[in-house]
């Protein structure tokens, strides 16, 4: 125990040190205040606001995360093509530079809002909120947020999405969940992409990737697919439709109980 790092403050004695406790103020008048809030309080607050905004319009928001080049944009192209007749889809795309991905997605008929993050390695809730001002949610069923390609930083920032989908492409290797536990723990669904390359590689074992995920105490479903050949796409499409139904059912229940989705003011 020392007097410098705070380790001398325990559950038992903290009432003496906090608030009006008689040890709360030092001789020179300084005081110690325990905050017990997340470091990303402001981001989380904004994320909650975004989530409510999506809910008010019955829109499912899906955050796609992966390393660069794992096939997020290719997956979205194939997904938009598969669902265009049934659902109205838009994409918010984050990249350090260029609007290449947004242009690719627009060619498939989906509105795509590009966020250029400059040097920022992730999207945060405020950036997504800004992008939402350019998107009319009345006309939409699903909004995909294509995060910056990065297996580290995006995992720490809630954007207001309803679910996280993490992509792991076969050339990256099946041990990635073990190496990037924060990212893979956050996944509500793991997609093993570029399955058309798996036979060529010879050393990517889907079961091994799944085992690494399970060791993170994550029981999210795992699907293998290839956006290029279309193999396995049906599992992903079914999952997505079910996620949309579940979200809408949640909103209906909420409205039945409370009359409306908790309103929010727009600043």
């Amino acid at each position: 125990m020392c007097d410098t790092c705070g380790c001398n403050m325990t559950h038992a004695n903290q009432h003496l040190l906090l608030g009006d406790g008689h040890l709360a103020h030092t001789s020179n008048g300084s005081a110690s205040i325990e905050v017990l809030r997340g470091l990303l309080d402001a981001n989380d607050h904004q994320a909650e606001h975004n989530r409510q905004h999506f809910a008010e319009h019955g829109v499912l928001a899906v955050n796609l995360m992966s390393s660069p080049g794992a096939g997020k944009t290719a997956l979205l192209e194939a997904t938009i093509d598969a669902l265009r007749e049934r659902y109205r889809i838009a994409v918010i795309v984050g990249d350090l530079e260029t609007d290449n991905d947004a242009r690719r997605l627009r060619q498939h008929g989906a509105p795509a809002i590009q966020i250029s993050t400059g040097s920022a390695c992730h999207l945060d809730a405020h950036m997504v909120h800004m992008a939402l001002h350019d998107l009319d949610l009345h006309d939409l069923d699903i909004v995909f947020i294509e995060n910056v390609g990065n297996l580290v930083c995006p995992a720490s920032f809630d954007l207001g999405q309803h679910c996280n989908v993490t992509l792991l492409s076969s050339p990256e290797g099946d041990d990635k969940p073990q190496k990037y536990p924060v990212m893979f723990r956050a996944a509500d669904l793991l997609l093993l992409t570029k399955s058309d390359l798996t036979p060529l590689l010879g050393d990517f074992v889907a079961q091994r990737a799944e085992r690494c995920l399970r060791e993170l105490a994550n029981d999210a479903p795992v699907f293998e697919l290839s956006s290029k050949s279309g193999a396995g796409m049906n599992h992903w499409i079914n999952w997505l439709e079910r996620a949309l139904q579940l979200e809408r059912a949640k909103i209906r229940d909420h409205i039945a109980m409370h009359g409306q989705v908790a309103g929010h003011s727009h600043g």
């Binding site: 790092c5 981001n43 990212m183």
Partner: peptide, 30 residues
């Protein structure tokens, strides 16, 4: 984000300076 929180608290408590900030960080926070 930390500074924003600290500033808000300092303002509320009318503190003119902050000498120490203690954080607890878990490995799953990234």
């Amino acid at each position: 984000a930390i500074i924003a929180q600290v500033q808000a608290i300092a303002e509320e408590k009318r503190a003119t300076a902050v000498s120490d900030i203690h954080l607890r960080i878990g490995p799953l926070s990234g």
